[in-house]
Simulated scan of single mutants.
Amino acid sequence: MVKKLFNHGKNPRYHHDIINMKEVYIDEKRNTIIGAFDKNNNLIGTIAVKQFIDRFDAIKGRYKESTTAELGRCYINEDLRRQGIGSQLFDNIIQFCKEGGYDKIYLHTHRHLPGGFDFWQKKGFLIIAEENSGEEETVHMEISI
């Protein structure tokens, strides 16, 4: 999905969590990645959450790391979008975050990604900052849970 959406392979600067999935999502109790599978056991969607790390200049100092989760890696097979798979994954992540002691979820997205920005707005995420420099047009969003 990274190659398809961003036209490049995994980059250690941006994809540490993908490259080190076990270390980031399995070994860390407050982090998780969830997959959705079809009846033939094919992976058709993912969503992940990890403890927020204050690494973005546009929102520096905004969040308490211990109570803020960062949502990411939400991808749904393009042939299966708008069928509720993303919503089911998101509902599971919300439950995981509540049980893990998080009270806020942060995410960043890009307007060029198909369906992402609109999906997050429909789920109640609010824009807290936008960065329009460069190619990515990053939108920072949050929701209280």
Rank of each mutant, 00 (worst) to 15 (best):
M1R: 02
V2P: 00
V2W: 04
L5V: 05
F6C: 08
N7K: 15
N7T: 12
H8L: 07
G9M: 00
G9N: 11
G9I: 06
K10R: 13
K10N: 13
K10A: 10
N11F: 00
N11P: 00
P12N: 09
R13D: 11
H15L: 01
N20G: 01
N20T: 11
Y25M: 03
D27A: 08
D27P: 01
D27E: 15
E28L: 11
R30N: 13
T32I: 15
I33G: 00
G35T: 03
G35S: 02
A36K: 07
A36T: 05
K39P: 00
N40K: 13
N40E: 15
N42C: 10
I44T: 10
T46I: 11
I47V: 08
I47R: 02
V49W: 01
Q51T: 15
Q51N: 08
Q51H: 01
Q51A: 10
F52P: 04
I53D: 09
D54I: 08
D57S: 03
G61D: 11
R62I: 02
R62S: 03
R62E: 09
R62L: 10
R62V: 09
Y63V: 05
E65V: 05
S66C: 06
T67G: 00
T68Y: 12
E70S: 12
E70C: 02
G72W: 12
R73I: 04
R73W: 14
R73M: 13
C74D: 02
Y75H: 11
I76T: 10
N77V: 01
N77E: 15
E78Q: 09
D79C: 02
L80H: 12
L80Q: 04
L80K: 11
R81A: 04
G84E: 04
S87E: 12
F90I: 08
D91L: 10
D91Y: 02
I93N: 01
I94E: 13
Q95W: 01
Q95D: 14
Q95R: 10
C97A: 15
E99T: 13
E99M: 11
G100Y: 00
D103C: 02
I105T: 05
Y106G: 03
L107G: 08
H108Q: 14
H108M: 08
T109W: 02
T109G: 12
H110G: 06
R111Q: 14
H112S: 10
L113D: 09
G115V: 12
G115I: 14
F117H: 14
D118Q: 14
D118T: 14
F119T: 07
W120A: 01
W120R: 07
K122I: 04
K123A: 05
G124R: 10
L126H: 07
I128M: 13
E131Y: 03
S133V: 11
S133Y: 09
E137T: 05
T138F: 01
H140C: 11
M141C: 08
M141D: 07
M141L: 08
E142D: 15
I143N: 06
I143A: 04
I145P: 02
